[in-house]
Simulated assay, not measured.
Amino acid sequence: MRNRKIKIWVLGLVLTMTMTGCAKSYYHGPESDHFDGEQFFNAGPPRDIGIRDLLRWRFTRDPPEWPESVEVTPDRPPQRIDGEQLRVSFVGHTTLLIQTRGLNILTDPVWSERASPFSWIGPRRVTPPGVAFDDLPPIDIVLVSHNHYDHLDLATLNRLWKRDRPRVIVPLGNDTIIHREHPDLRVEAYDWEDEVALSDDVHLRLAPMFHWSARSLLDRNRALWAAFLLKTPDGNIYFVGDSGWGEGRYFEDAGERFGPIRLAVLPIGDYKPRWFMSYGHMNPDEAVRAHRNIGAHHSLASHFDTFPLADTAYGEPPEDLARAREAHGVSEEALRALPPGSVWWVPPV
């Protein structure tokens, strides 16, 4: 039964993504050190796996069992947090509510039931959001790191836009994807190293992130991906939505240029099988090394135990993270893995 569902999912994915992905160009602009005029790319070796590898994995995999659902005790955030205090509510996956300096900032907001182009099949969340949508305070800023379905959720963006009219900030090309579905939604698209003011004392910088992008089979790397650096007077916040290790070069660079880092948000999940996942997804050991390369005072683990996206078992990433912390001499206080609904008052630098 499970193999049959996988085959149906894959065949539906191939058909729908081929039909919707024809001749998609999300961005036109000058060439750069990460854009060749048609596609974006990382420094270092290119991603050398494609649709044939995807199909081989999907048809031969033996995925571990995940629970149908996991109970969550939701957070009910305050309306605002002023001054140097930093309150972070872990909603789940890479969705966080960051409150500091009077701003309410959401990262990669996903309140949908599935991370999929379909409403009827595809990865279904096993943990409800750690903050109910109606309990969200007024949202000022929305940051979307890239266009994969578990990060760019068009339905949630539209709900936020209709309710709060937040500033929606994305890397180049992702504005086109959003506007094709919701043409009235105002989006700001920027390149790596661009910087914008969010308030008088908080600024945002887009930084390199070692990943890739696609919404269909025919639009790979047509939209950019990025990490986000929030520059505040109380220490900086470095949000990485999804990233491979990439020889650690981007993390070393972030540590040299963007310190002091008060909080880094680092993905630890969906890393199996390594032959297929390693390019775009760190494992917990690499996340600990990234934490050390960045020189972060504190780090929060993300991208685990919400959607069954790969062959990583439920509960496996935090267990592997604990072993990696011990191996590298990093304390649990410094690098935490929290369940959805948890709140962390992060100390200032």
Results as ranks from 00 to 15, higher is better:
Thr73Glu: 15
Asp311Cys: 08
Ile51Met: 15
Thr100Ala: 11
Ile261Arg: 13
Ala115Arg: 06
Ala264His: 07
Phe35Glu: 03
Leu218Tyr: 09
Asp311Leu: 09
Ile261Trp: 11
Asp164Leu: 03
Tyr149Arg: 13
Arg52Met: 09
Leu204Ile: 07
Leu13Glu: 03
Ile121Gly: 11
Arg114Tyr: 08
Tyr27Asp: 04
Trp225Pro: 00
Asp134Met: 04
Leu55His: 02
Val265Ser: 10
Phe59Ile: 13
Thr127Val: 08
Asp36Ser: 04
Pro46Lys: 13
Tyr250Pro: 01
Ser342Arg: 05
Phe251Gly: 08
Gly280His: 01
Lys7Trp: 12
Asn3Lys: 15
Ser199Gly: 08
Arg249Tyr: 04
Met17Leu: 11
Ser278Trp: 01
Arg56Gly: 03
Met1Leu: 12
Gly269Leu: 12
Ser69Thr: 14
Arg262Ala: 03
Glu247Gly: 11
Asp75His: 12
Pro64Glu: 08
Gln39Phe: 03
Trp111Val: 05
Lys162Asp: 12
Ile105Val: 15
Pro138Val: 05
Asp270Asn: 15
Pro183Arg: 04
Tyr27Asn: 02
Arg2Gly: 13
Pro318Met: 07
Arg101Met: 15
Arg274Gln: 08
His179Ser: 14
Ala43Asn: 05
His298Ile: 03
Ala155Asp: 10
Ala214Lys: 13
Asp134Pro: 00
Asn283Asp: 15
Leu198Ala: 10
Val265Phe: 04
Gly246Met: 09
Arg52Pro: 00
Glu38Tyr: 03
Leu152Ile: 04
Ile51Ala: 15
Asp140Glu: 07
Glu71Phe: 03
Tyr250Thr: 10
Thr100Gly: 06
Ile178Gly: 02
Thr100Lys: 06
Glu247Val: 00
Ser331Gln: 10
Arg165Trp: 01
Ile8Trp: 05
Pro347Trp: 10
Asp53Ser: 15
Thr100Arg: 14
Asn283Ala: 01
Leu172Gln: 14
Leu321Lys: 07
Asp53Leu: 02
Glu333Leu: 08
Arg87Glu: 09
His28Glu: 11
Asp219Ala: 04
Leu15Tyr: 05
Pro123Gly: 11
Ala337Gln: 12
Glu68Ile: 01
Asp201Lys: 05
Pro267Glu: 06
Arg56Asn: 12
Pro138Glu: 13
Ala223Asn: 06
Asn3Leu: 06
Leu198Thr: 05
Leu96Ser: 03
Gly248His: 11
Arg124His: 11
Ala324Cys: 05
Arg257Val: 00
Pro318Gly: 09
Gly241Lys: 04
Gly244Gln: 09
Glu71Cys: 06
Ala226Leu: 02
Val168Arg: 05
Trp66Leu: 06
Gly259Ser: 15
Gly295Lys: 14
Val91Ala: 05
Leu224Tyr: 00
Asn293Glu: 10
Val343Met: 11
Thr312Lys: 05
Arg159Ala: 14
Asp184Lys: 07
Trp212Gly: 02
Pro260Ile: 10
Phe228Glu: 05
Gly83Met: 03
Pro63Asn: 10
Pro208His: 06
Val330Ser: 12
Ala155Cys: 01
Pro78Asn: 02
Thr20Pro: 00
Trp225Ala: 13
Asn236Phe: 00
Arg56Ser: 13
Glu256Ser: 09
